[in-house]
Amino acid sequence: MPWSTRDTMSLREEFITLACQEGANRRELCRRFGISPQTGYKWLARFAQLGSLGLADVSRRPLHSP
């Protein structure tokens, strides 16, 4: 049995494609992909705002430091 070699971006794109379909159960998709609903809705919001560029990882580094 061959291993599934898929990168993070392709999994996120597949999640977005399935979640945008009519009548999709987004919470069930989150369970299937092994992510929290908060993360799933975050990806959907970023995709709606920035398109496929919004699915890339964003740095957690603070913009300002005291």
Results as ranks from 00 to 15, higher is better:
residue 65 S to P: 00
residue 63 L to S: 10
residue 3 W to R: 10
residue 1 M to A: 09
residue 1 M to Y: 12
residue 8 T to D: 01
residue 20 C to L: 08
residue 41 Y to P: 00
residue 33 F to M: 04
residue 17 T to M: 09
residue 45 A to I: 00
residue 42 K to L: 09
residue 32 R to C: 06
residue 62 P to E: 03
residue 2 P to Q: 04
residue 44 L to V: 01
residue 45 A to C: 04
residue 38 Q to L: 06
residue 66 P to C: 05
residue 13 E to V: 10
residue 14 E to N: 10
residue 54 G to S: 13
residue 8 T to E: 05
residue 65 S to Q: 09
residue 47 F to I: 07
residue 58 V to L: 11
residue 63 L to Q: 14
residue 9 M to W: 13
residue 64 H to V: 07
residue 9 M to K: 13
residue 8 T to S: 15
residue 19 A to G: 13
residue 11 L to H: 00
residue 38 Q to D: 05
residue 35 I to A: 02
residue 46 R to I: 01
residue 22 E to R: 13
residue 37 P to Q: 06
residue 41 Y to K: 01
residue 20 C to A: 08
residue 17 T to K: 10
residue 16 I to P: 08
residue 7 D to V: 04
residue 31 R to S: 05
residue 13 E to Q: 15
residue 22 E to A: 15
residue 37 P to W: 12
residue 26 R to N: 06
residue 22 E to C: 10
residue 55 L to Q: 06
residue 36 S to V: 01
residue 21 Q to V: 03
residue 11 L to S: 00
residue 13 E to T: 13
residue 50 L to P: 00
residue 9 M to V: 14
residue 43 W to R: 02
residue 2 P to T: 05
residue 60 R to Y: 14
residue 23 G to E: 03
residue 1 M to P: 11
residue 6 R to C: 04
residue 42 K to E: 12
residue 39 T to C: 10
residue 14 E to R: 12
residue 16 I to H: 07
residue 49 Q to C: 10
residue 57 D to C: 05
residue 18 L to A: 13
residue 5 T to I: 14
residue 16 I to L: 07
residue 6 R to W: 05
residue 36 S to K: 13
residue 47 F to L: 06
residue 50 L to G: 01
residue 35 I to N: 01
residue 15 F to N: 02
residue 15 F to A: 02
residue 21 Q to A: 13
residue 44 L to E: 03
residue 39 T to H: 14
residue 3 W to D: 10
residue 45 A to L: 09
residue 30 C to D: 04
residue 5 T to D: 08
residue 62 P to S: 14
residue 38 Q to G: 04
residue 17 T to F: 11
residue 52 S to M: 09
residue 10 S to E: 14
residue 10 S to H: 02
residue 62 P to K: 08
residue 56 A to F: 15
residue 58 V to G: 06
residue 55 L to D: 04
residue 33 F to N: 02
residue 8 T to V: 13
residue 17 T to R: 15
residue 3 W to V: 10
residue 66 P to D: 05
residue 25 N to D: 14
residue 60 R to N: 13
residue 30 C to L: 02
residue 49 Q to A: 15
residue 27 R to T: 09
residue 42 K to T: 09
residue 31 R to K: 12
residue 16 I to W: 07
residue 20 C to E: 07
residue 46 R to T: 00
residue 31 R to H: 04
residue 8 T to K: 12
residue 65 S to M: 08
residue 53 L to N: 08
residue 17 T to Y: 07
residue 28 E to S: 11
residue 57 D to K: 09
residue 42 K to W: 04
residue 9 M to Y: 12
residue 19 A to I: 04
residue 38 Q to V: 07
residue 44 L to C: 02
residue 28 E to W: 08
residue 56 A to N: 12
residue 5 T to P: 02
residue 56 A to S: 11
residue 29 L to P: 07
residue 38 Q to I: 07
residue 19 A to C: 11
residue 42 K to G: 00
